[in-house]
């Protein structure tokens, strides 16, 4: 029994991700010794911030048995509108205002998603697709497509606050890690705790596993569905404002298309697309893997134009391996 459990742990989805990360790092490290530097850790963390935030939104929705493809559009609106107001309507130079408005916008669209899925019972993919067009179509029609590249001083101050400053002894370059990296880290811990130790968290798994049984057991299915989509909307508002600060750019289309890689990241991290499975640990590993691949293909000598293709292949293989893993664990149990 014990050795069986140990075996199951060693071949679990998370451990396989660890192996792949290790092997990939080894290959890159052998070809480019410069990889073995603390700077790699900082670069990876910096690059992973957005994907991690988005994955934290998407993960909750998928666990609850839905899917959200509207978060890029919601995020765009949530960073564009405050920046539009600050730049063109009233120069409110206050970080709380920027983040607060972003959260409110996210909340509004999250409620719309929740309404469409939980109350009207529409298929989540199509409902969130509709929200996506309403959000991006609406904001562009009213406010136009500009790009704001200058941050107000309050946000610039956040940009200038670094958590870690590190000068590489090998290259002499200076690397910094912004304080905002704490947001996904803290939220990861909170979500991990919430999923495991609160009835809200267990409820999300419960409705992702069997909605009818959840209703019979006395769970408020609609409320839980709302919670998932509202969380996704609210947190993507925060994430988008972080994007705006770190990238110095707020446009109406900056995040569009990110849903693809985010969903893939969740699935590779062990969040089953059918709902009810997965957790923060796997998703963190999966985001690290994807970011490592994206960041270090240059080091492997793969030309820029081929990188999207290679990342696509990695995602496809990851998805196939995960599905195969799932099927195997189901089969093992029946025997």
């Amino acid at each position: 029994m014990n050795s069986k459990k140990k075996h199951a742990w060693l071949t679990s989805n998370q451990m396989i991700l660890v192996y792949i990360i290790a092997v990939f790092s080894l290959i890159v490290g052998i070809r480019q010794p410069a990889f073995w530097d603390f700077a790699t850790v900082l670069n990876t963390m910096r690059a992973a911030i957005f994907t991690m935030c988005f994955a934290l939104c998407e993960m909750i929705v998928i666990i609850s048995g839905g899917i959200d493809v509207s978060f890029p559009a919601i995020g765009c609106v949530a960073m564009y509108v405050p920046m539009y107001i600050i730049n063109r309507v009233a120069p409110i130079d206050n970080a709380w205002f920027a983040f607060g408005l972003a959260v409110l916008i996210g909340l509004a669209f999250g409620l719309l998603n929740g309404f469409l899925v939980a109350i009207l019972n529409l298929p989540p993919l199509i409902a969130t697709l509709a929200t996506s067009s309403i959000a991006s179509g609406g904001v562009v029609t009213i406010l136009g497509t500009r790009e704001f590249t200058v941050l107000p001083s309050s946000l610039q101050a956040i940009y200038n606050t670094n958590l870690i400053t590190y000068t590489s002894p090998k290259t002499g370059f200076q690397y910094v890690l912004n304080v905002l990296v704490l947001v996904p880290i803290i939220v990861c811990l909170l979500i991990a705790w919430m999923l495991k130790y609160t009835m809200l968290g267990r409820g999300l798994y419960v409705i992702g596993g069997n909605k009818t049984a959840a209703r019979v057991a006395g769970f408020n299915v609609k409320k839980l569905q709302f919670a998932a989509y509202v969380w996704s909307g609210v947190f993507v508002g925060v994430a988008a404002m972080i994007y705006n600060i770190l990238m110095h750019s707020a446009t109406t289309s900056a995040l569009m298309g990110d849903e693809m890689i985010t969903i893939a990241a969740c699935v590779i991290g062990g969040v089953r697309i059918t709902g009810g499975h997965g957790g923060v640990g796997g998703v963190v590993l999966s985001v690290i893997l994807i970011t490592l691949v994206q960041n270090n293909l240059n080091m492997l000598g793969i030309p820029t134009s081929w990188q999207r293709f290679v990342v696509g292949i990695v995602l496809l293989l990851g998805t196939i391996i995960t599905s195969w893993q799932t099927k195997r664990s189901m089969k093992m149990s029946q025997a």
Binding site: M260, S305, W306, I313, L315, T319
Partner: peptide, 26 residues
């Protein structure tokens, strides 16, 4: 492999677009 079509074609989009990008070089 009995994988949901949504996942496969989502990855497919990246692969095929990526291949098109790779062929044109940009």
């Amino acid at each position: 492999l009995d994988i949901p079509a949504m996942l496969v074609t989502l990855c497919g989009l990246e692969v095929y677009s990526g291949l098109a990008l790779a062929i044109t070089g940009g």
